[in-house]
């Protein structure tokens, strides 16, 4: 990486408003993907009440210290950063441990992120669900944001609230990831379409992730999909998001092409024109 990127690290908040739409999965996969592209990356779990990023990265047994000890100066930053074994460019820092629910303030968050940013090209902040204190803390230190949502009314509505809050805080740019896309349902208009969601939220799309069972398999194992580079659609989508974040011009996936093969494509065409099935 060049001097410019290391001089001004990207500090990106990953948030959604609604819980369970894929924030932590996105953070873990993006973290690995960016690290594999040679970026020094730190993923910060700002959800210290219900932290899970460690579990998705397979690092749950290696956490000794958290940001809390670093701020209290009972340990050094290097001791608290948990390096990923297979991907040494990636480190995890949990904000705190679940037993302490009160200590974190927006100023704490800014301090710890500033420390981490000195040694990173990318800092990804995994935001807690909701728009209360946890969100405000996590957002306090972020320069830009990725809002992740699914094509469902509740997730889109909550995303809209979060986007409003990010706008008033001056966090920019804010980009959108649309997760759990079901091409078949979109084709038959039984799901909000990609354009519907981008129209409503008025954000540029940085990624489109199709519903993929491999995501569940990978979380079971604690090995993000982007780690093994298998060709599953979601793995490809996460890798592409990482490349777009670095400024590469990677065209967006067309969800209707996700089902490969001539027969599948033909069926897709028929479905689109008739609205059948």
């Amino acid at each position: 990486m060049d001097a410019v990127t290391s001089a001004s690290p990207r500090i990106i908040l990953i948030c959604s408003g609604k819980g369970g739409v894929g924030k932590t999965t996105l953070t873990a996969n993006l973290g690995i993907a960016l690290a594999r592209l040679g970026e020094r990356t730190v993923v910060l779990d700002a959800d210290f009440g219900l932290r899970n990023l460690d579990l998705l990265l397979g690092l749950e047994n290696r956490i000794v210290y958290t940001a809390q000890e670093v701020l209290a100066e009972t340990c050094r930053l290097e001791q608290a950063l948990v390096k990923h074994k297979q991907e040494p460019n990636l480190a995890l820092l949990p904000a705190g441990n679940p037993r302490m629910l009160e200590w974190l303030t927006p100023e704490d968050m800014q301090r710890i992120v500033a420390m981490v940013a000195e040694r990173a090209d990318f800092v990804l902040i995994d935001c807690p669900a909701g728009i209360e204190d946890g969100f405000k803390n996590a957002a306090a230190a972020a320069r830009e944001a990725i809002v992740i949502t699914t094509p469902e009314v509740s997730a889109v509505r909550d995303a809209d609230r979060v986007i409003g809050l990010l706008n008033t805080r001056g966090v920019a740019p804010v980009q959108l990831v649309l997760n759990r896309v079901r091409p078949k349902m979109m084709a038959s208009q039984e799901m909000l379409g990609v354009d519907d969601v981008t129209d409503i939220l008025a954000l540029p799309l940085v990624g489109l992730v199709v519903e993929d069972e491999q995501v569940i398999v990978s979380t079971n194992r604690g090995e993000p999909l982007t780690l093994n580079g298998n060709g599953s659609p979601a793995a490809k989508a996460y890798q592409n998001i990482a490349r777009r974040l670095r400024g590469e011009d990677v065209p967006l996936e067309d969800p209707s092409k996700a089902r490969r093969g001539l027969r599948a494509r033909l069926m897709n065409k028929i479905r689109k024109t008739t609205g059948l099935f």
Binding site: V153, S188, Q189, E190, M191, L192, D196, I200, G275
Partner: peptide, 11 residues
């Protein structure tokens, strides 16, 4: 189609 309804309701 329910997708269209979803969009209208959201707007």
């Amino acid at each position: 189609p329910s997708g269209t309804m979803a969009k209208e309701r959201l707007q």
